[in-house]
Amino acid sequence: MKKIMAILLCAALIASFTGCGKTDEGEVSQNAQEAENQGTENTDVANTEKEEETAKEDYKFAIIIPTSGNEYFQGEIDALQAVLDEYGYELNVISYDMDATKQVSSVENLITMGVDAALIFPMDKESVDTACKSAMDAGVKIISGGIALDNMNALYNTDQVEAGNTISGMGCDYIKETYGDNEVEVAMLVDTSNSNMATRSEAMKETLAKECPNALLVKEIEANDTESGMSAAENIIQGNPDVKVVICINDASALGVVEAYKAANVTEIAVFGSDGTAEGLKKISEGESLKGTIAFGAINLGEQLIKLAKGENVDELLSPPIIKITESNVAEYMAE
């Protein structure tokens, strides 16, 4: 009897251990499955976050310019393209060809194009501000070049008074060095097509009158590109042959003046411009009649646009320093 009871007790003990073993194995299996499911969920979340991060990095940019035939604006395009290419970002280049209606539609199209941030060079505030508001309401970040708008994230603008003062200041220095206190006839090519150029033009005239009282301004003509600059110079050569200095609103018009005087075989002429274009610097370095220009120090607008697209803040005013370039230092800037 005792032997039978011992056998039954052993059987019961074995059964109890076996039962416990089955329960633990089930729990382990269940826990493993839960861990596997949790791991899958974590992987899915990580992949989703990665995809969202990648999508956010796929930014599109645009530059809207008034004309495609200007070396200054081409320089702005090239500078932006170089920066954005480093990141693999797309840059859309849009010219509104000095057409106010086309300018507005160009800004409105930024929304349908899916542009995240744009550099815009407006004709004037009134014609484009409403379109910029619509674009910003749709999430487009805007840097305005040259004209302060009610609807923009930042203003990229030169101190136009300082620019005008510096251009005419170079002309005055040349007159003093070359002609002393003798009276010298001067012509000026100005641009009043927008508020910035009008401000620069006015500063040019004021500085000439203030710093060079022996300079006699005998001709003032509207010109802002090479063709109009050449036409203006031909007019001056015919009507005012004693002009010795021509002070120009920009390099584009100044280059037209240089070519016109060269074609007329007039050598006693000094021309001054602005914008520090490659062709302008080349003419100065070659000892042509273009004697000086101003350039604008570097502001990395590409990086500024990228910051805006990412939701980061930038300075409200992006103003480049003004650099005076003459034959004495032109080589330094041509090498860059």
Rank of each mutant, 00 (worst) to 15 (best):
S168Q: 06
I63T: 14
A215P: 09
I167S: 11
A232C: 01
A260P: 05
D24A: 15
M113Y: 09
G280D: 08
A82C: 03
D97H: 09
I4G: 10
I111K: 00
E185P: 03
A46V: 12
T23R: 08
K310R: 15
G169H: 08
G169L: 09
S201W: 05
S106H: 11
I269V: 10
A163G: 03
T178I: 03
L308Q: 11
K2W: 02
I64N: 04
I4L: 15
I299L: 09
E268T: 06
Q38N: 13
A252G: 02
V243H: 11
D78R: 05
K176C: 01
G292H: 05
I247R: 06
P213D: 05
E185V: 00
T277G: 01
E86I: 07
K50F: 14
G26F: 00
G292Y: 08
V83C: 05
E220G: 02
V257G: 00
E211D: 15
A331I: 07
Y59Q: 12
I77R: 11
K324Q: 14
Q38K: 05
Y89C: 11
E57S: 15
D24Y: 10
F17Y: 07
M1Q: 10
N165M: 07
E303R: 11
D78N: 07
S289K: 05
A335P: 03
P320F: 08
A11Q: 03
I325R: 06
D99A: 08
K262C: 06
Y87S: 14
N250F: 07
D315Y: 06
V271R: 03
G229W: 02
L149Q: 15
V104L: 12
I111A: 05
A331Y: 01
M98E: 12
M170N: 14
G302K: 06
A135L: 13
V45L: 05
F73H: 01
T43M: 08
E86A: 12
A298P: 00
A62N: 10
M334F: 01
E279V: 08
A232Q: 00
S144N: 06
T130Y: 15
D315F: 04
I14K: 02
F296I: 09
A252F: 00
T226A: 05
V186T: 09
E36F: 09
G302M: 12
L305G: 15
L9N: 02
D173Y: 09
Q304G: 13
E286T: 03
D150T: 14
D78W: 05
I7C: 02
I299A: 08
S168I: 06
G297W: 02
K210G: 11
K282N: 14
N224K: 12
I323L: 13
N37V: 03
E227G: 08
E52A: 15
E27G: 03
I247V: 15
E222S: 14
C212G: 06
N165H: 00
T326W: 02
D24F: 09
Y333C: 06
M170Y: 14
A260V: 11
A331Q: 12
N151D: 13
T166K: 11
S201G: 10
I236M: 11
E185Q: 15
L317G: 03
L80I: 13
K262L: 05
F296E: 06
G280A: 02
M98D: 13
A15E: 00
P320D: 07
D251R: 01
G145D: 09
S134R: 11
E332F: 01
